[in-house]
Amino acid sequence: MAKKKRVRKVKDLTIHFMPYSEIRHDDAITRIKKIMGIILQDKIVILQGRLRPDEETRLIENTMTLIGNIKGFQGIEIASIDSEHRGVFDKMRRNLARILVGENDAITIIGPAQVVKEIKRNPKKIELMLKGR
């Protein structure tokens, strides 16, 4: 008889969905402050859209400053995934949408490293591996 697989229960996991409209008008500092505020509560943020490259580096800098200064904080795991755009017309439409309504044609997952073990990403999917609690 085949052994029954044990499913480990995850306790107290909170996922915070952040629509792009929540950060659309914010500057980089405010955006990062908002995200880090949630991360430091041990919550996982699912952001509609993605951060700009300079915002991502700022987020990393911020994270590095906090490691060692906040007990138990080990950093973050982050991954973004875009919807697939194959043709030239598709890309043009996306660029136009980006100008008009901002970068919201992507999903970004950011989680505290003490909760999220790893985020595996390939072009088509993101897998979130949580730490056993």
């Binding site: 700009r52 490259p53 300079d54 991502e56 580096t57 990393i60 982050i78 991954a79 973004s80 985020i119 595996k120 990403r121 390939n122 072009p123």
Partner: peptide
């Protein structure tokens, strides 16, 4: 290693910018 890590994308994105 998996090249799709966000750190790689962030570094390259910053250089392009």
């Amino acid at each position: 290693a998996n090249p799709y890590s966000q750190v790689n994308i962030t570094i390259i994105g910053n250089l392009v910018a």
